[in-house]
Design a protein around this nucleic acid. Sequence first.
DNA 1: CGGCTACTTGACTGTGGTCAATTGGTGTGG
DNA 2: CCACACCAATTGACCACAGTCAAGTAGCCG
Lengths: 229, 229
Amino acid sequence: MRLTTPRLLERCPMFAKLASDDHQRIADVSEVRVFKRNEVIFQEGDPARSFYIVLDGDVKVFKSSQQGKEQTLHRMTPFNTFAEAAVFLQGGYPASAIALHETRLLEIPRDKFLDLIRSDPEMSLRVLASMSVWLHRMVNLVEDLSFSEVPVRIARHLIRLAADGNVEMEDGVTVTLPTTKTEFAKLVGTAQETLSRALSKIGDEGVISIKGRNITIKNAALLKEMAGK
Amino acid sequence: MRLTTPRLLERCPMFAKLASDDHQRIADVSEVRVFKRNEVIFQEGDPARSFYIVLDGDVKVFKSSQQGKEQTLHRMTPFNTFAEAAVFLQGGYPASAIALHETRLLEIPRDKFLDLIRSDPEMSLRVLASMSVWLHRMVNLVEDLSFSEVPVRIARHLIRLAADGNVEMEDGVTVTLPTTKTEFAKLVGTAQETLSRALSKIGDEGVISIKGRNITIKNAALLKEMAGK
DNA sequence: CGGCTACTTGACTGTGGTCAATTGGTGTGG
DNA sequence: CCACACCAATTGACCACAGTCAAGTAGCCG
């Protein structure tokens, strides 16, 4: 681990531009941790001791309600960072995080992370940049929840998934849901039943075809149309 | 203006701990701007040239939809900062801002702001802190929109308003809506008609009494109860 | 007083959430 | 290898919250 971590850091935007001995320095103060599928990384309210970088696998950051409902805030993939903001808030993590698959994370303790920022003004700018991205994501989520109905939100997420697979989105492209449709529903912010119905409907209209977790886009133009501006 | 600005900066968390000549330095690179009620400060998509500190008055930061609906993201009061994140994002401001009343803002140009951060590691930590607060607000908003129905959201906003007036919330306390009920509806994230009905209902239940923009809390315990955990 | 905006109230509709039953798929253990 | 169990997904029936449209009232300012 110690040997490979610096390499991986080069691919993470927040650390990409550092000298390689800086990478070693970060690797020295951090720890690689492995989480099994569905293993809890932290829960809302836990004291925010660390911030994280996804090295491998994927992580769901989410809010859950008293009644057991869930809203996914974001699904993190390799070289994304999360919980950087929690480090600056008292009151612990404002959301929970679990591994969606077997996942390797780089865990940087709170105070080491703060040292890092203090020691390097350029680093602090990159942390600010990554937090801005988070903020932007959350504002977009608010927008989606406030203004868009379920089918529109679904269309947008399908488009995003296609983009994540960095395939040009065109007729015939197949996107694969990262996990279950139940998870996808939590991402979209709806009930699984509603998702199921909405997907079939979109299928009936000839926009997509659904085979398990594989969704083939049959009419990309119409899908974009559905997703609105 | 030039004379009073440094004084005001002492009361802003982001700048409070600076030496007073730093305050003067900030005042020198920034500009005090006055906005009339309902005057637009910036619109979603505008290039993010500056970030702002509310000196006086109040500002609404909001998203609006194609169909003319609005969702208020936050109402800023004196010594709050906004648009700090936009400075780090390409694509311009992700939301719009207007003055709710006659308002004085300190406007700090993007590059001066970046200089400020680069020049002082402690400053960057404070900017990070203020962005964390924004992020936390947005996560809470997502939570509210996803999990809570309108009456609960209303109760929470009433409690927050009471807290803003830093009065201990107890029976008999009166909170005054900062502007119109229509605005309040946009803050809560609902239609004015729905707000109107919901408020009357809460009134009928004896929890509050409503006289125009003044809402008297008649049963604080019940109101907290309504707001949930 | 007129005119504008804010607000209220009524009637209706639709989206989507919940409960419940069924089917389908997958992995484990006998 | 099959049977069972478990979880994911689908489908049906129902309902309620809240949004929309419309009309009317109240309040405010010039």
